[in-house]
Structures are given as structure tokens and as C-alpha cells.
Design a protein around this nucleic acid. Structure first.
Lengths: 196, 196
DNA sequence: TCCATTATTGAATGATCGTTCAATAATACT
DNA sequence: AGTATTATTGAACGATCATTCAATAATGGA
């Protein structure tokens, strides 16, 4: 016995997320958000408490999508090292389609939000560490199969690859051509071929 | 025959730069800047036109310092590949001392400023490309001396190392311990050891 | 059909934003 | 000493910020 909600929470979060992704947290105003979501300020605040909380929900929404992609790529039935290559191929494709150079919302957030905002930094760090762990498991699997030299430490390699991805996300802002990005990936992945 | 300027332009730029570095462009207000520089708004605007221009001057100031460090490290009299290692050792030290996790102002700016701000993006990109070229020249020198396999393309390697630095700058925000960062650097630099 | 409950509206709030400018102060030259 | 010139001050401006809330609308159950 009450008036029903007229909007879909998921759709609103998608709209908000896209805006934060394109403009960053500080540069996105409530006015921007009301226009993008077609919700009035009051509704936005009733549903999401405030701007900061809406942002956090947007981050969660982004990570859900990201995690789905990562899992489907890294848990496929292809050989482990091939799956790593698949991931980077996917990253390059996505980077290519991203004509606005938005990059990764999590990486952008990590650099924009002040260090002393423990909550947001912790949340984003955890999300990225989750991805790092997925990488690590695949590398362990490769090592077990003998596709990766036993002298490697999978956790260190995973960390290095994740760092490489972060770097690519930044490098893209310099508007390099696809070939340049591809060459970086090739050199990065050449570490895995090392027999030591 | 006029009243002399009471402040040192360089000191003011240093103060402003530190603030932009710590907080980012959008999160830094004129009030913040007047407090940090001890200049009133009017003086600030008389000397630097507006906030945006003050930021651009701060970027230049930052790059001057950066370029000095890079040159002294990469043009030393040590063997070329050793100079690359020196650079990363310096980077790790600096990262360690940076308890606020400010990272690199240029990298932060590249991610914060919208893509459609051509001027700032172009300026920052040029600065970073300058560093990349310094790396490239050292790698060419190493190749000439036979310290680097001739199959490598120095420009691609330089790009990969720069990307690695960007990545480390981001990774640092996740508050990793020094060992973790060191391992990333080791794995990154292991590419150079490849004999192909 | 009426009512209790919740959703939506959008104007209003006070704070803060970047920027301007008239008033005042400090200097060098005559 | 007087004056032309430039530097400094800091209050004031309009715009915009995030947030609130009283008024209104829409529903399901009685």
C-alpha cells in the first residue's frame, strides 16, 4: 500500500557509473547526474543517500561487470598461458573501442580519490586485488602444467602483469596508436617466455 | 618606478605545485592556494591569470625538476643498462619516501583532466614522451655496446618501461609493501636480460 | 471510495566555487 | 618631497555546489 518506485535501480546505476567513468567523481555534479539518470535530486537522495554513496554503488556495479569478463576469459577451457594472452587481446580491443579514453574506472578512482579516504581506497584496492588473484591462479596452473618455468613466483608475476595493465590504462591517455600499445603488451608478456 | 613584487614566483609555484600534486586540480580551491602560497586572490590572478594557468605553470615547474633528475640518472658515466637500473632504484626510493602516496603529478593529471582538454593533455604527453625518449637513447647506446640483444627495438622497450613506471605509480596507491614493488621492478627489468 | 504509505517533484538553502575590482600601499624616478 | 606606476588587499559578485524538505502524486488494502 504505497506508491511504487518508477525507475530501475540497475539502469540508474549504469547511467551514473558511465558518467563517473567519463568525468571522474569531483567533476560530476548532482545536476549532471539528475540529467543522466532522469531522476530529480530528491529521488536520487532517497534512493542512494548522497553523491558519495551513489559513487560507491557505481563502483560496485562497475566491478560486477568487470569481474564477469575477467572470469570468463581466465577460466575458459584454453591453455592457461593462452588465457593470459586472451585477456590482453581483449584489453587491447576494449582500449581501441574506448574512443573517449575513459580507461578503467577503478584505476581512475584510485588516482583521483585522496589517500586519506580509507573506505573508497580500500574498496577499490580489494576489487583490483581480486583480479590480481585470478591472474595468480592461472599462472600457478600454467606452472603445474610445465608451461611456465618453475623459478617464477606466480604472485610476483601476477602483480607485474596487473601493474602493466595499470600502465597501459595511463599510456592510452597519451593517444598512442594501436601498434604502440600492442608492442608494449608483447614485450610485457615476453617475460613469461623466459626459461631462466 | 613602481612597487616591487613582494613574493618569489618560484616559491609560489613550488607551493601551488605541491598542493595540486597532493589534491589534484579539481579538489584544490583558490582558498587552498591562497593559504598555501600566502598570496591573496587578487595577487594570484595578477601574477598567474587564473587557476588553470597557475596549474599549467605548476606542471612546467614539476617537469623541470623531473627532467633534471632523469638527465642526471640516465646520462651518468655508468654503463647504459646500469643507468636504467639506477633509475628504477631511484623511483623505488622516492616511492618509499612518498608517504602520502602522491605518485607522479603528470600521471595523476593525465587521468584527471578530461580528454577533450587538448592543451593540458598535449603538454603532459609531451613531457612524458621526453622522458620516454631519454630511455630510448640509453637503450640504443646499450645495444651499440652489445649489452642489449640486437633483436630488441629500443623505442618499443622504452615505451614498455615507461608504461611499467605508470603502472607502479598506480599500484602504489594500493599501499603495497616495498618488497612487492621491488619484485615488480625486477620482473619488468628481466625483459632486458632476454637474449632472444 | 477513501486512507495509509511511499515516491516524486523541484524550489530553496547555505556553503563554496572561481574571479573581479576599487581602494590602498609601496616603490623608483624627477 | 611629489608623482607616476605597479603590487597588494580582501570584500563582493554571480554561478554553481551538494543537500533538504514541504507539497504533491500514485499506489494497494480496507
Amino acid at each position: 500500500m504505497a506508491r511504487p518506485q518508477a525507475f530501475e535501480r540497475d539502469q540508474v546505476l549504469t547511467d551514473a557509473m558511465r558518467l563517473f567513468w567519463r568525468q571522474g567523481y569531483n567533476a560530476t555534479s548532482i545536476k549532471d547526474l539528475t540529467e543522466a539518470t532522469h531522476l530529480q535530486p530528491g529521488s536520487l537522495y532517497a534512493a542512494f543517500k548522497n553523491k558519495r554513496n551513489l559513487f560507491i554503488q557505481s563502483l560496485n556495479h562497475y566491478f560486477n561487470d568487470l569481474h564477469t569478463s575477467v572470469v570468463s576469459l581466465l577460466h575458459s577451457n584454453r591453455p592457461p598461458l593462452q588465457r593470459i594472452h586472451d585477456f590482453f587481446a581483449y584489453l587491447l580491443e576494449q582500449t581501441d573501442r574506448d574512443t573517449e579514453s575513459k580507461g578503467c574506472l577503478l584505476v581512475n578512482t584510485l588516482l583521483e580519490i585522496p589517500t586519506d579516504d580509507k573506505e573508497i581506497n580500500q574498496r577499490v584496492s580489494n576489487m583490483l586485488q581480486t583480479v590480481e588473484k585470478e591472474f595468480c591462479r592461472v599462472l600457478e596452473e600454467a606452472q603445474l602444467k610445465g608451461d611456465l618455468a618453475p623459478t617464477f613466483k606466480p604472485d610476483e608475476l601476477a602483480r607485474m602483469l596487473i601493474t602493466g595493465i595499470f600502465g597501459l590504462r595511463v599510456y592510452k591517455r597519451m593517444q598512442p596508436d594501436r601498434q604502440a600499445m600492442q608492442a608494449v603488451v608483447n614485450n610485457l608478456l615476453s617475460v613469461l617466455d623466459n626459461t631462466r
